[in-house]
Structures are given as structure tokens and as C-alpha cells.
């Protein structure tokens, strides 16, 4: 069986799904990465200008980072397959909150045997990358899962000196830097919806909501940012 016949491709969303119903001529055209990009619409694309006007220079900014490559991995860390997957990702996190980064991706701990590998858009196999293929091959026939989840979640980036204040309106984790350190990612609730919160810098957070929650969470965060656009009341 060639790699292209492996079942994981049937779980691909977006461009490949589109290709399934397209005519052969269109399929050939959509193999071009630029065409693929142009055909896609991210879950919060309709909020892009609102995010821009709602951001406050030097205080708090919100933007969507669309189409990141995300691969769900379920494997026993202690198994041979776990070790092979770890060699692709630079390791598999051992405890809640831990993330492991190498030159091609960042791997988040979601559970004792569940991980999320996040990489830039171009790491995706449909855009010339090889991340999904490398992970599928690393798992091989062993028990576990490697599933392309790139269309499952979008990414928001909330940054600025007030970013933590905005998050704290809807998230009950202890986000103080002494507890919540840069490089930590936690699956939790923000604004009453499930999301993954990843602290990527001192005043910089990436939030991964599921696509269907992107509109709600985007507007929730904008609402939380509003007060910082007004002059401080003495």
C-alpha cells in the first residue's frame, strides 16, 4: 500500500476535501499551494478588521494566525512508537503544561497519552511540508493515533501588557507569571468554552479554540479589550 492510500488522508479537511468533489482539471490546479491558500477561509477571517480596530497600540492586540498545521497524536510515551514519534517532535511532554519545541514544530501535552503537534502552515503536506507524513510513518502499525487536525482549531494571538488582564476576565487559571510560565500550554476554559492556552512570551498568548467557537471567543476577547481603549478613569 502506498502512503497516499493510507487512511489518514481521508480525515484531511479543507483543500483535500474540496479536491474530492472537484473535476480533475481543478484538482490539478489546486495542487498549487497558492491556489490552496486563496481557496481557504479561516474560522475568524470575518473578524480580521474588527480585531485590528479593537487592538490598542502598546496595550493589547488580538489577531488570528490562520491555518496552522496541527496534528493530534495519541501514543504511550514509553512505547517504541512513542520514542519514534518523540524523535520527530524532539520529545513528547511528560507532564501537564509542558511543551517541547524543535526546529519543525511545538508539541503540547494534552493528556498522559495525548499530544498536539503544532507547526506553521507550510509544514502541512498539502503545502509542500512533510510533518503529517513523518508522524504517520513514525507511528507505523503500532497502537495509537496520528490525525491531521489542522482544520479543527484556529489560533488567536493575544499580546501586550494587558493581555493577561483580558484573559483573566474569562479564565480561572492562575495566570500570574510566577505560576504560568512562558512555554506552558494548558487545556482549559476561556469565556466558558474549551480552549488551549499557550503562553509563548512574557506578554504573549496563543489561544486555540475549536473552529466553531472562534467567532464567540474572538468577540469575547474583543469585549474584554474594550476598556483598555478608553482613557483610565482616575
Amino acid at each position: 500500500m502506498s502512503l497516499w492510500e493510507k487512511p489518514y488522508f481521508s480525515t484531511l479537511k479543507g483543500p483535500v476535501k474540496m479536491a474530492e468533489t472537484a473535476t480533475p482539471a481543478e484538482t490539478a490546479k489546486s495542487a498549487n499551494p497558492e491556489m490552496l491558500r486563496a481557496a481557504r477561509r479561516s474560522p475568524a477571517s470575518h473578524l480580521a478588521s474588527t480585531f485590528e480596530s479593537g487592538s490598542v497600540d502598546g496595550t493589547v492586540a488580538l489577531k488570528e494566525i490562520p491555518f496552522q498545521t496541527m496534528v493530534g497524536v495519541r501514543v504511550d510515551r514509553a512505547s517504541d512508537a512513542g520514542a519514534r514519534l518523540a524523535s520527530v517532535t524532539g520529545g513528547l511532554p511528560a507532564v501537564c503544561g509542558e511543551t517541547i519545541r524543535n526546529e519543525r514544530s511545538t508539541t503540547l501535552w494534552l493528556g498522559p497519552d495525548e499530544f498536539l503537534v503544532v507547526a506553521p502552515e507550510t509544514a502541512h503536506d498539502s503545502l509542500g511540508g512533510d510533518l503529517v507524513r513523518a508522524l504517520v510513518e513514525a507511528l507505523g502499525e503500532h497502537p495509537g493515533q496520528v490525525v491531521d487536525l489542522s482544520a479543527n482549531r484556529t489560533t488567536f494571538e493575544l499580546s501586550g501588557i494587558r493581555a493577561r488582564d483580558v484573559l483573566e476576565k474569562g479564565c480561572s487559571l492562575d495566570l500570574h507569571p510566577r505560576e504560568f510560565r512562558t512555554g506552558t500550554a494548558l487545556a482549559t476554559e476561556i469565556g466558558n468554552i474549551p480552549a488551549i492556552l499557550f503562553k509563548t512570551g512574557e506578554d504573549r498568548f496563543r489561544i486555540f479554540p475549536r473552529a466553531s467557537f472562534a467567532d464567540f471567543l474572538g468577540r469575547w476577547l474583543l469585549d474584554g479589550m474594550r476598556e483598555f481603549a478608553s482613557p483610565e478613569v482616575p
Binding site: L110, G111, E189
Partner: peptide, 14 residues
């Protein structure tokens, strides 16, 4: 005292 099961649905799902 009652022994009961819980699942961490929006966390580790265990």
C-alpha cells in the same frame, strides 16, 4: 462519604 467517578472533560480527558 461517597465514592464517585469524574472525568476532566476540558483538560486531560481522563
Amino acid at each position: 462519604n461517597f465514592a464517585e467517578r469524574w472525568v476532566h472533560s476540558t483538560g486531560c480527558r481522563k
